[in-house]
Design a protein around this nucleic acid. Sequence first.
DNA 1: CTTTTAAGTCAATTGTCTTGACTAATTTGT
DNA 2: ACAAATTAGTCAAGACAATTGACTTAAAAG
Lengths: 400, 400
Amino acid sequence: MNDIRPIRATSGTNHEGTSAHNRRVIIDALRLNGALSRADLARATRLTKQTVSNIMEELENDGLVTSRETVRRGRGQPSTPYSLVPEGAFAIGLQIDRHITRAIAVDLVGNVLIRKEANLPAGGPATGTPVVLQLVEDVRSELKERVAQAEKRLVGLGAAMPGPFGIEQEDADNPWMMGAWQRFPLLETLSAGTGLNVTLQNDAAACATAERMVGAAHGLDHAVCLYVGYGIGAGLILGGELYSGAHGNAGEIGMALLTSGGRQTQLEHRASLASLYDHLGVDPMAPDIYSLIDKRAAADDPDILTWIERAAIDLRWSVQLIETIFDPQTVILCGGAPPALATRLMAAMQPLLPSNADRPDRLLPRLQLGMTDPWAVARGAAAEPIGHAFDPRFQAILKS
Amino acid sequence: MNDIRPIRATSGTNHEGTSAHNRRVIIDALRLNGALSRADLARATRLTKQTVSNIMEELENDGLVTSRETVRRGRGQPSTPYSLVPEGAFAIGLQIDRHITRAIAVDLVGNVLIRKEANLPAGGPATGTPVVLQLVEDVRSELKERVAQAEKRLVGLGAAMPGPFGIEQEDADNPWMMGAWQRFPLLETLSAGTGLNVTLQNDAAACATAERMVGAAHGLDHAVCLYVGYGIGAGLILGGELYSGAHGNAGEIGMALLTSGGRQTQLEHRASLASLYDHLGVDPMAPDIYSLIDKRAAADDPDILTWIERAAIDLRWSVQLIETIFDPQTVILCGGAPPALATRLMAAMQPLLPSNADRPDRLLPRLQLGMTDPWAVARGAAAEPIGHAFDPRFQAILKS
DNA sequence: CTTTTAAGTCAATTGTCTTGACTAATTTGT
DNA sequence: ACAAATTAGTCAAGACAATTGACTTAAAAG
């Protein structure tokens, strides 16, 4: 009667769960491999030809896949490859950063159709929310114009902003943080303001999602993206899925403490674009800052080079730490740094520190350069709702 | 014809996969909640009463669950709770450490039935393997004597030893490592020598498995076990599963570099029992070392206290790092340290460094003391095959 | 030009969960 | 004391989705 202890259990599954899983497995295989015939899919997924045929028919009717020209591969009946239809699904990606907000529209295969940005006024969510909502609305209506049936195939809005979320912030007005935004119920506001499914993640996680869907982590099950943006963080692909921790704050290595040059500070204060701007004495609000940094880096500006030297020390340490702790297949350097800066930073990080990643059976480079354009976070944010709708995941199998 | 590119895809599933998953979900719910009625299980797993009834009948026939006395809980027909039968499954756990090897037999609910240990002679696997195999055989035959049908319900042998595995070791004879064992095909040797299913993991991971099954991480989905043994490592429970990384080396934080007292060293060289033995100048091979350390710690031996002070600094940093990177629900300090030492170490680590784990909605302590007896690793190793046989996991759903 | 091989379909079957009606056992309210 | 309400659990039929095996189609090899 008064026995109201909650019972802990995983959800069971049923036929619908099975079916949903198999559909997702097939879509995922097509995304990973480009185009595959029904027979190929049957072998790859270990389903029977018949099951694959049934699912493919469904997917074709749903407008998610389409057949291509038959190909002859030796003996036997030629096969008909199928590939994903880019127009099968759309998503909007939104990045909210310190001084700027960006929104994009992407399709099922990750093509960016529309990109728009706007400056965020000082004043936090109170003044920023209308700007953000307007930007999303602009992208959405342009998408509607350009693609007739886009609206009903819009699977959601993925938002990304710097973390961490939900912690007790003593230093609420620390300029490295975005305290006001982080305490603001952004998810609910966006959801109410757009009527879409909204997901929220931190910017490093979004970058990792982008790298996994269309970048250097494509098809990898264990990869860590070291995100160097205004702040620094790590996006974690662990066991084939993005890992966010218990409260969405996993990978926030910017707050890791390190002793460098005799003083103990946070990693973020030494290796991030913010620390670069600080070092150079430039205004992060400047509209042309991206090209400015790119040009100065390309010209091997001595001030930039000294920052690179210093940051590389801490980034080398970070890579060694990440390899030691996560044992990934590869580490990917990504973020909003301009190409000239990113390549120089990559070079300055070599040689990497010795670590467990030195293996005789290693296939991939220990460190790779990933997407480093300012739109990477928005792309990853947009990839989230699409991935959520179509990835085979544990969650997908459970009863709804 | 020559198109032999491998196709990447997740496996699909079928009815058998569904059923296997649901069986595992039910067993897991019983393990987590003790005893539950069929109706309770149906609600908790979101399966129908009928499905649960069918599965329970099967499980009862298989000897894995048994009914208990009916209980009246208010109105309606009294319910019949079911609980796991301890004798439903057995597993052997094996720990191989620097100077010693331990083997235990456990049952389905984690009771330790038999424990045996042996000193490992110097000389690595060549001389050690016979000792290890004999120890396992001793445990196995005693189990056979004590429980008639144990042999056919023996689900496997779980082995644990210090990592990392499979890396290029320049310092093959570094005494902190176990290079010879780590290069040795232990899994194959044990498998051939016993005919059992064998799994291998590092000692910190085994400890985490133990904590999850019967300890402080019971029922948690995000927990990190900071394992302080002869070496130091972290066992990772991420998203409800043990995470091992791409090559089984995730969590090997002993190799993390830190700058402490002006010098850069590995964490392992400062906070581990090996460093304590070194500090005290005692021989790690001494047979009574565990009780010796326990006694000296209980007597607040000044040499031990200075080590604790120093180690606590680095452990505080480790906890802050773990919280920053993994965002777990809790961190658990465990390992082979004697109780008197472990409690003093816990105390010396307070107060913890500020971190993202300072949350207003926090439910569990940031740091908890877990199992700290020398048998914890063997228990965790033994839990692995049982968990593998009965946990609802993603793998379980895929087609075999 | 026959044989072999592979892609893909058709129709029947099988495995597993769901549904709805039922029985059983207990408490609550009159 | 007895009817009504409530909860546990069963029975039998149905629905869903994958499997099976025989078949058709189309190409290469001998």
